[in-house]
C-alpha cells in the first residue's frame, strides 16, 4: 500500500459551479455535456462545448484538471452523440474522459489514444478481474469504485491491480447496484443508464395535502412527509413503502455518504482521489462541501486531528450522515 496525496475531485454542473469548485480548493473538477451522454442529464444543467473550453482554460490556469463524464450507455444504433462528446472533450483540452460503455471506451481508445481514460462508477467494476479487463483492453488509468466496498476491500483491490482508484467521499448512498439499477425505468419508461437521469424531473411531482408533502415519480407515490420531517429525493430506492400497514424505507434510508472522518484510512489504503458527488447541486453546495474537504485534507497533510462528521449534515439528504459500505459490518 502506498501513501500518497489525496486528489480532491469536485462536481461542476455549470460554468459557475466549475469556477466555484476551482476557487474553493478542488484539485480536479468533473463535468458533462448538455445531453444524454452523461448521468446527470437535467434541464438547464451541464456545459456546452464553448463553456467546456472556457472552463478548461480557467481550471488549467489555476493548476486544476478537468474530467468529462461521458458515462451513460448508447442506445442501439445511436452512438453518434457519445462519439461526438468524446471528440469535443478532446478538442476542449480535457485531462481525461470518464467512460462506462465498452463501445464508447473502444471508440475513445482508437480515436483519441492520447486522451486519458477513467472508468466510471456506472461500469460497476468492483473486483480485480473486471478492472484488469478494462486496463488491458482500453488502457484505463483510473477506476471510480462503486459504493459497495469496505476500506479493507478497497485496499485489497489497489494491491491486486495497481490501478489508480477514485472513491466517493461525499454524496448519496448508492443502491448497491450502481450502473445496473433500473428501478426508476419501471415508473418512468426512461432508462437511467441511457437517458442520464434516475428520477427525471419531467416525471416528478410534489403535492401538498393536509400539512403533508407527497412526492410522486411517474404517477406513483414514493413518499409522504409530515410537517417538519426532512424530505428525501424522489427516487424509488429512497421511497417509503407500506407493508403490513406500516410505512418504512425498504431499500435505502434518506441519508448522505460522508467519508470525511475516515480520510486517513482511505489514504492509507492507497486511494488516489476522492470524489465529491453533486453536479445537480447548486454552487453554494459546491463551495461549502469543497472548502470543507479542502480544509480536512490540508489538516490531514499537516498531521492534525481527523475532521469529525457533522459539519456538513445540513447538506445531506435527510440531514443524516453515514460511512456507508466503507464501514460495512454485514460480511
Amino acid at each position: 500500500m502506498s501513501v500518497r496525496y489525496l486528489e480532491l475531485v469536485c462536481p461542476a454542473g455549470t460554468p459557475a459551479a466549475l469556477r466555484t469548485a476551482v476557487e474553493s480548493g478542488a484539485d480536479t473538477v468533473y463535468c458533462g455535456f448538455r445531453d444524454c451522454t452523461n448521468a446527470r442529464n437535467y434541464p438547464g444543467l451541464n456545459l456546452d462545448f464553448d463553456e467546456l473550453r472556457e472552463g478548461v482554460a480557467f481550471a488549467h490556469a489555476r493548476d486544476c484538471k478537468v474530467l468529462v463524464a461521458i458515462n451513460t450507455f448508447p442506445r442501439a444504433g445511436a452512438e453518434a452523440p457519445w462519439h461526438r462528446a468524446v471528440d469535443q472533450a478532446a478538442a476542449a483540452g480535457a485531462d481525461a474522459v470518464i467512460l462506462a460503455d465498452l463501445g464508447v471506451l473502444d471508440y475513445a481508445t482508437r480515436a483519441h489514444p492520447q486522451l486519458r481514460r477513467h472508468l466510471s462508477v456506472q461500469a460497476s467494476a468492483a473486483n480485480a478481474p473486471s478492472i484488469r479487463f478494462y486496463q488491458e483492453l482500453f488502457d484505463v488509468r483510473r477506476v471510480v469504485l462503486p459504493r459497495v466496498l469496505s476500506v479493507d476491500e478497497v485496499a485489497e483491490l489497489i494491491d491486486e491491480t495497481g490501478i489508480e482508484t477514485e472513491v466517493f467521499a461525499f454524496g448519496s448512498v448508492g443502491p448497491m447496484s450502481e450502473g445496473r439499477c433500473f428501478l426508476s425505468s419501471y415508473l418512468t419508461g426512461l432508462s437511467p443508464t441511457s437517458e442520464g437521469a434516475c428520477a427525471p424531473a419531467s416525471h416528478v411531482a410534489y403535492e401538498e395535502a393536509g400539512g403533508r408533502v407527497n412526492s410522486r415519480l411517474g404517477g406513483v407515490t414514493l413518499n409522504s412527509f409530515a410537517r417538519g420531517e426532512p424530505a428525501a429525493y424522489p427516487t424509488p430506492c429512497k421511497g417509503r413503502y407500506v407493508t403490513h400497514g406500516r410505512a418504512s424505507y425498504l431499500f435505502e434510508e434518506p441519508v448522505g455518504l460522508n467519508a470525511i472522518s475516515i480520510l486517513p484510512g482511505l489514504k492509507q489504503a492507497g486511494v488516489t482521489a476522492l470524489k465529491i458527488e453533486g453536479r445537480q447541486r447548486s454552487r453554494a453546495y459546491v463551495a461549502e462541501v469543497v472548502a470543507t474537504f479542502r480544509r480536512a485534507l490540508d489538516a490531514l497533510d499537516r498531521g492534525e486531528a481527523v475532521t469529525p462528521l457533522g459539519a456538513l449534515s445540513g447538506s445531506t439528504e435527510g440531514g443524516k450522515e453515514t460511512h456507508g459500505a466503507y464501514g460495512k459490518g454485514w460480511r
Binding site: 419531467s202 411531482a205 401538498e208 445540513g314 440531514g319
Partner: peptide, 16 residues
C-alpha cells in the same frame, strides 16, 4: 436541495 430537505422551499406543479 438543502432547503428542500429542510422543507424551507416548497415546489408544486411542473417540476421539470
Amino acid at each position: 436541495d438543502t432547503l428542500f430537505f429542510r422543507r424551507d422551499l416548497r415546489i408544486t406543479g411542473n417540476t421539470s
